[in-house]
Design a protein around this nucleic acid. Sequence first.
DNA 1: TTTT
DNA 2: TTTT
Lengths: 164, 164, 164, 164
Amino acid sequence: MLNRVILIGRLTRDPELRYTPQGVAVTQFTLAVDRPFTSQGGEREADFIPVVTWRQLAETCANYLRKGRLTAVEGRIQVRNYENNEGKRVYVTEVIADNVRFLESSQSRESGNASGGGDMPEPPAYGGGGRGNSGNSGFSRNNNQDPFSGDGKPIDISDDDLPF
Amino acid sequence: MLNRVILIGRLTRDPELRYTPQGVAVTQFTLAVDRPFTSQGGEREADFIPVVTWRQLAETCANYLRKGRLTAVEGRIQVRNYENNEGKRVYVTEVIADNVRFLESSQSRESGNASGGGDMPEPPAYGGGGRGNSGNSGFSRNNNQDPFSGDGKPIDISDDDLPF
Amino acid sequence: MLNRVILIGRLTRDPELRYTPQGVAVTQFTLAVDRPFTSQGGEREADFIPVVTWRQLAETCANYLRKGRLTAVEGRIQVRNYENNEGKRVYVTEVIADNVRFLESSQSRESGNASGGGDMPEPPAYGGGGRGNSGNSGFSRNNNQDPFSGDGKPIDISDDDLPF
Amino acid sequence: MLNRVILIGRLTRDPELRYTPQGVAVTQFTLAVDRPFTSQGGEREADFIPVVTWRQLAETCANYLRKGRLTAVEGRIQVRNYENNEGKRVYVTEVIADNVRFLESSQSRESGNASGGGDMPEPPAYGGGGRGNSGNSGFSRNNNQDPFSGDGKPIDISDDDLPF
DNA sequence: TTTT
DNA sequence: TTTT
């Protein structure tokens, strides 16, 4: 009935942009979100939370996000499941983001990052990429497939499987 | 840095209350949260999201929640991981709730439910069980162990492992 | 950059549906949200929070919400200001809702309410009215005018003033 | 029943720290939060949302926040009302924050700001000041008084009026 | 393994 | 497999 998540954390790696065979953009990244307390041993721990974005927002994220960048994400929790190669059902929990805010521009940091990156233009004033005046619903409708389980192989879903 | 989740959904079963060997109460249940759109085939789907509560709130949830009951949950996403019996790392994502609201009292429904239940007193005005004036922090601090992986066997963590 | 509100409370009165001169539907209601603690004197207090919905969602709310009904609202805080008849600037804070969930159907309560009401059909499975597959953005874009300040008089804004 | 707000924006001025006569710290500041769309005329508008923090968190905010700083705030909406000097009831809506995150440290910006500021130590790893391991509930319980309405005059509320 |  |  209601499912809303808001996270602020840092990307553990550069985002991964892929396309479904029908050309729908999908970007995945993981946010490291520090826990609000220290563990028994006094170390600060973090949760590593997978985030998925679709379409226009996916391309904006792929263009402007980089490893280590502080980022805010708004979306919903999605729990998918699939049968793995040993016939076991595997559950995957991800945050499907419909709004992403870039809290650090490229020049506000030392600007060195693992992926090189090079020419990084300024992010758009509104990074949400989809909500607002764009005429796009800005609401990543669904994705009950796993575009990342293939590990680099082409994704064999058709646009008919995509609920938008 | 920030990690907040709000869900409204229905319990898929009665909640499960357990105790750590040191007597700390832990309650687990799963919320079925309808997705805000229908799938390709036109069926309404749901996400099944595991929720964990600790201490006083765990006992309140075990007392007042039942299968099918409409419930609001506020908390944070936690991602644990452990090595399973085949030596493979398994990731478990749960919502650690620090606030739970009972949106249906027992008499507001047909009152029949799988678990029988019988004498169900009215829930407290404030179901959060922990926040507020109770002198309790109301913030489920941590739980990096998996009290449910043992499937009924005693939970072998000590209170020293609990960060509260 | 990010502005998100989630409320669960009860309507203090029946919702008020109006139309701009251009025929855009606007519904206003107030949610009474109990505070999570009692006051000094031990009384339970509440915040009375004004909520505004636009367009399709406005009509759905006007159709299905009634005084006393438990309701969840998702949206953003908006602060408008205008000059009153004494030339003083007045600030008005409202929640502009883009998602509303009806947590009580008409038959789940005594069904008597101040406004009479009468024939109340079941709410749609998805009360959000706008998000999802409807092709509507579901995101109430703006409203920097005050459709309620006229107190019953026609609202003199043109559709050109509406940012959608 | 549930009342949660999450904001990301920039301080419009330096925060104002005051103390009740009984020595309870209260800090007030306003966040400018850009709207996710542009107005009719194409200008980007913002909501100016007043935020209040209490006790330990108030002192941390006063120490580490400055005008212009990007800041995340988590809390609840509170609506107070009081009678003004003309006998009219005035409604004041504020976000009572229980968690504040400093998204920009002093060195990550040009470090020039209107208030001078000077020696600004690094913020604590956890800016929430209250939640977590501190033994403090971290939940700003109430404040039904208006510590800012006096405009600089001493605040005439007693600790008995404070619900904590 | 799933709720209405 | 993880970020600062």
